[in-house]
């Protein structure tokens, strides 16, 4: 099998001596058409990898911004099949930007792991982060992913010691998402100095690139994280742009606003030259 799109994104960033920008948006918020425009705007403004949030009624690891985004997406009827269809639409014209589905286990379980893995691979999705499927519980999905060339992206956190990092790395692929703070998405920001050692440990143990997220909102914060990691994940800050569009009713404003933020973050990340 050739190089995956995710591997390609990291390889390109390495060639350019920089970290990658991973951008998150909630599919269907404020509507699917806006999400499609946002996907394109994020890609056009420097997002290397895009996480496509799948809404769930009970997002236990998310703070207020993403909780509300999920409820808005559900309120306008967004289903997991719509999220997959959105990915397929984007993939028609873009063969390189990795798309990662991020969400919770129950909608995927409800669709059936096999059906989901088939549909995701066919749509051109590259992998998933299922927040409440730790390594102990994702074996059935992992086997299907291997068959379809999809990546199982796992989370590491400040509570992950070296022993646990080995468990997290078992069967992981693509990259490791390092959650910078103990907390929910969009909560307080992390001190890069405090987690740098742990990020390096996870990278060494997993042999995979490590991207840091949670609490990163501004260019300045992104630049600090870019110094210690292979990539920076920004979520709630993008989701808030969609929230603004929903509040004002000006849906068309969402994609340009998200694009502008992506550009700001990417310029900041690019200012950090990596060896």
């Amino acid at each position: 099998m050739g190089r995956t799109r995710i591997e390609g994104a990291f390889a390109e960033a390495r060639r350019e001596n920089r970290a990658v920008l991973v951008a998150y948006l909630m599919a269907g918020d404020p509507d699917l058409e806006t999400s499609y425009a946002a996907l394109c705007a994020l890609r056009d403004n420097g997002a290397d990898i895009i996480e496509l949030g799948a809404p769930f009624t009970d997002p236990m690891a998310d703070g207020a911004a993403i909780q509300k985004a999920g409820l808005r997406a559900l309120a306008n009827g967004t289903k997991l099949t719509d999220v997959i269809a959105l990915a397929a639409r984007f993939r028609k014209d873009d063969q390189t930007t990795p798309l990662i589905l991020m969400g919770y286990a129950n909608p995927v379980h409800s669709m059936g792991y096999e059906t989901f893995a088939d549909a995701a691979a066919t749509a051109g999705i590259d992998g998933s982060i299922i927040v409440d499927l730790p390594p102990e519980e994702d074996a059935p999905l992992r086997e299907l992913y291997t068959r379809h060339g999809l990546s199982v992206i796992r989370l590491a956190t400040p509570t992950t010691d070296e022993h646990r990092a080995a468990k997290v790395s078992e069967g992981a692929s693509g990259f490791i998402y390092f959650v910078a703070v103990t907390g929910v998405t969009g909560a307080g920001s992390a001190d890069p100095a405090a987690i740098a050692g742990q990020v390096a440990m996870v990278k060494r143990v997993s042999g995979l690139p490590v991207c840091v997220g949670f609490g990163v909102k501004s260019g300045a914060q992104a630049a600090e994280m870019a110094k210690i990691a292979d990539g920076v994940v920004v979520g709630s800050a993008f989701v808030e742009k969609a929230g603004d569009a929903h509040a004002t009713g000006r849906f068309k404003a969402a994609a340009p606003a998200m694009g502008a933020l992506a550009r700001e973050l990417r310029v900041a990340i690019d200012s950090v030259r990596k060896a």
Binding site: V131, P134, E137, R154, L155, P158, T159, D161, V168, V179
Partner: peptide
């Protein structure tokens, strides 16, 4: 079925 933060 919990977030990784809680697993340890």
């Amino acid at each position: 079925y919990v977030a990784e933060t809680l697993m340890p």
